[in-house]
Amino acid sequence: MNLELENQRFIICGASSGFGEAIARQLLSEGANTVLVARRGNVLRDKFGHFEDQASIIEGSILYDETLKKIGKSVQKKSFHGIVFNAGGPPTGTPLNTDMADWDSSWQLVMRWKIDLALRLAPLLVEKKYGRMLFIESQSVKQPLPSLTLSNSFRAGVVGFAKSLALEIADKGVTVNVLAPGSHETPAIERVIKNN
């Protein structure tokens, strides 16, 4: 299938494993250019180094402003057409097994960086009157899952933000979508199973 992605450029967060890696591979196989973001730059280089003409790498945590600034600079140098918001989830636990430190760190991990990066990049897509924004979340946004209190809460918040953003920019040529997958064989689900 030819998705006509040649000469289009996409940012993929969390590209070193799981859904991020799978999406990056598919985009690259379709001829797209990518900006691959992950903490483990060595893993990105091992997995995607042979795509050197199509893939550039940003090594760093999306929780750090420095990394978000690097992403912003990468799209100012060259045009881009879309972004995949993707990262690991917070610790497992029931409501009464959490404390406020858990809530503070999970807000940073699941929600805050996505809003920050979206607010930095959405205006650039609106200016071009074209773009794709995809948030990778969880089936828990439809029905909370046992022992995933932190994920249930903040991922639902991300969906609320994404819907609100879509209302503002959809008529300007920029789509905002949420993918809410169930269980797949990824490092993230293995961690959840191990901790339950």
Rank of each mutant, 00 (worst) to 15 (best):
F135V: 06
R40H: 15
R155D: 01
L148G: 03
V37H: 06
V110G: 02
S17R: 11
R45Q: 10
L145R: 13
A22S: 13
E59I: 10
G60F: 14
H50A: 05
Q26M: 01
F80A: 04
A15F: 05
A55Y: 01
V176F: 10
D104M: 12
R9W: 00
L3E: 01
Q54W: 04
S61C: 13
L109N: 08
L150P: 02
F10K: 03
F19R: 02
R112I: 04
Q8A: 01
A122T: 15
A87M: 11
S16W: 05
V158S: 11
I189S: 07
A32V: 01
D46F: 05
F80I: 06
E59D: 13
G157H: 00
A166V: 03
P181S: 10
G160Q: 00
R9I: 04
V35T: 09
R132I: 00
D171S: 11
L134K: 00
I115D: 09
K194Y: 12
A188K: 11
V37W: 06
C13M: 07
H50E: 02
S74K: 04
F161S: 04
L121R: 03
K78H: 11
V192M: 11
S16P: 01
I136V: 10
L27H: 01
L63T: 12
E30M: 09
E52V: 10
G88Y: 03
V126S: 00
A101N: 15
P123C: 12
Q54A: 06
E52L: 06
T186F: 07
E4H: 13
R120Q: 14
A55Q: 01
L5M: 08
A188S: 14
E185R: 12
S138W: 00
K172G: 02
D53W: 05
G60S: 13
